[in-house]
Amino acid sequence: MSGPGQAGPAVLVVDDEVGMRDTLTDIFIDAGYQVSSAGDGFEALDRLREDHFDVVVMDMRMPGKDGVTTLEEMGPPPPPVIMITAYAVDELLRRAVASKAYAVIHKPFGVPHLLRVVETALQGAPGDGTRP
């Protein structure tokens, strides 16, 4: 999918933590994606209004506007959203499932697994919220 001179699929990385945001950005760039990043839900919604993204990888818990609320506020049809969380289960997770997040990935995760899920999402396979 990726290659020099070719524009890969566009990925939006949304995370309030710099370390996570930067490493994820690098990982996707390394994997040949076009990557934009946002530090919170408001910024993410701005980015989504400005540009088209093929997939969104978003932290579920963020100050200000959390990932699930952000997903709920995305204009239809939203791109596939993969939620990342450090929490095993909570109300946000249930809402994420209800809001048709494409998948929920628990921290810490194996990078190959994350890339596989993103790739599956891009291929248009149906997501049920928890299944990668």
Binding site: G19, M20, T23, I27, D30, A86, K107, V111
Partner: peptide
């Protein structure tokens, strides 16, 4: 525990990038 998961995830990502 929850707070530790974030740095662990970042370290894991970093290790991946180092490997690459």
């Amino acid at each position: 525990g929850h707070e530790l998961r974030n740095p662990l995830a970042v370290i894991s990502n970093t290790l991946y990038l180092l490997r690459r």
